[in-house]
Simulated scan of single mutants.
Amino acid sequence: MSAFIVDTDEHKMLRESAGKIAGKYGQHYFLERSRAGEKVDELWADLGQAGLLGVHLPEEYGGGGAGMTELLIVIEELAAKGIPLLLTVISPAICGSILAAHGSEQLKASWLPGIADGSKKMAFGLTEPDAGSNSHNVSTTARRDGDGWVISGGKYFISAIDEADAVLIIARDQDFVGTSRSPLSMFVVPTDSPGLTLQPLPTAVVSPDGQFTVFLDEVRVGAEALIGMAGNGLRQVFAGLNPERILAAGISNGIGRFAIAKAVDYARDRKVWSTPIGAHQGVSHPLAESHIAVELARLATYRAAELFDAGEPAAEAANIAKFAAADASLKALDQSIQTHGGNGLSNEYGLAELWFNARMLKTAPVSREMVLNFVAQTSLKLPASY
């Protein structure tokens, strides 16, 4: 554990609980299922039954009534055991947070209890081939049709939708008339809706959370599918995007901790000419530097969660934490692989296969370049570049 992150008694118990469940399955289970293209349903069910997936959701809808800090602890501990689960960020964090903040009573009652106990999963449909970081450029449309809506378009790099019961879709108002961009709205769309089809999107990431292209061809939903106010989707979606950045940082920090712990154990035990390799500064100093970077990223991440839970502006802190954590974890993982020598590339040690997970988090859910744009324009008040 860290000398800097001081847990309350409740947080210690939560961290131990998450770590115990993760340890029950271990990284071998995660990698074995991922390589086979299978899911981690048993782990997910155990996390839900223990109240860990919905720890941040309102108690009246089956959640734990805690905050983003508590969910951060759960997600970081999973990754620290070699189990970086993207779906923990997507379903309970992004979708659960948006529904809790802006959903109707009907939507909350229908979805939050299941999201909290793990019996229901929800994917998040924002990105498109021509609208990655630029949410203003979403081209998927929704038009009013009687009492409901008809949605058409496509989404790209949508995680884990193959195991989701619904997808939260961001769409543009097709019928808007005005001089400005047409407003965006958010809808809960069941994944078995006629007209919704999935196409697998192969990647190098070893994970049970697959990526998909999603096609929506005249998909009809009722009026109850609308989240919050029509046309207010872009503002409402930020109830999920700051948690997304904070918890993505949590996954990175967990990967960093996992990598350093593996390297330290190896450097203590591995001997060359009767001397543990960890006694050599060429090994020990890079690991010490990696540890420092990961601990600083963890401090930034818990500070961002603290601000979010206090209702304070958290966008700057969340973006900085995500940036720092992604860089620190990748450096730590690379150094751990190097410390292991040839063994670092062996499947037995579970390091090389995590590399693409760690590398992905420099690009998603928001790229480091967009974080730098945000900091330059918002924190430093420099002229906008776009």
Rank of each mutant, 00 (worst) to 15 (best):
P243D: 03
A325E: 06
K271C: 10
R235Y: 14
L241S: 10
A259E: 05
L216G: 09
P194L: 10
D269W: 07
T191Y: 07
V219D: 03
G233W: 04
V264F: 01
R245N: 13
I251W: 01
Q281P: 11
T213D: 14
M229A: 15
A310G: 08
Y266K: 02
E289L: 11
A223N: 09
D217K: 11
I260Y: 00
Q236E: 15
A300K: 09
T197P: 09
A263F: 00
T301V: 10
F215D: 14
N232W: 14
S193G: 11
A259I: 04
L216I: 08
A326N: 02
L234D: 14
L307F: 08
A321N: 05
D265N: 11
K322G: 05
R270F: 13
H291A: 15
E224W: 10
L241E: 14
A230F: 09
E218K: 15
F323D: 08
A223K: 12
G240W: 03
D192P: 11
P286R: 05
L198Y: 11
F258A: 01
P313Q: 09
A259G: 06
D192T: 13
A261Y: 07
A326V: 03
G254N: 07
L287W: 00
L296M: 12
A300T: 04
A204E: 14
E295A: 09
Q211C: 15
A310T: 04
T275K: 12
L241R: 13
H285I: 13
A261P: 05
T203G: 07
T275F: 04
G210V: 06
V219P: 00
E306V: 01
A314N: 00
L299M: 14
A259W: 02
S274E: 09
R303V: 08
P276R: 01
D269K: 12
G195V: 11
S290F: 04
V214I: 13
L201P: 01
S252V: 06
R257E: 07
L196Y: 08
A279T: 03
R257W: 08
V219E: 01
Y302M: 12
A225S: 15
A263S: 03
E218Q: 15
A263K: 00
I255H: 02
A259H: 04
G282M: 05
G278L: 01
T203F: 05
L226Y: 06
I320R: 10
G256I: 03
R235I: 14
R257D: 06
F323L: 13
D217C: 07
P200V: 08
I246D: 00
E224K: 11
A318S: 14
E218S: 11
Y302I: 07
A223V: 12
D217Y: 09
P313D: 10
D269G: 13
M229K: 15
V214H: 02
P208A: 09
H280V: 01
A317S: 12
A225R: 04
G195E: 06
P202W: 03
S193V: 08
H280Y: 09
N232G: 14
L287Y: 00
V221C: 05
F308K: 01
T275N: 03
D209F: 09
G254S: 04
Q199F: 10
P276T: 00
I227Q: 08
A288V: 05
V283H: 00
F258Q: 00
V264Y: 02
E316T: 15
G282H: 04
R235F: 10
A300R: 08
E316L: 14
I320L: 13
V237S: 13
G233F: 02
V272M: 04
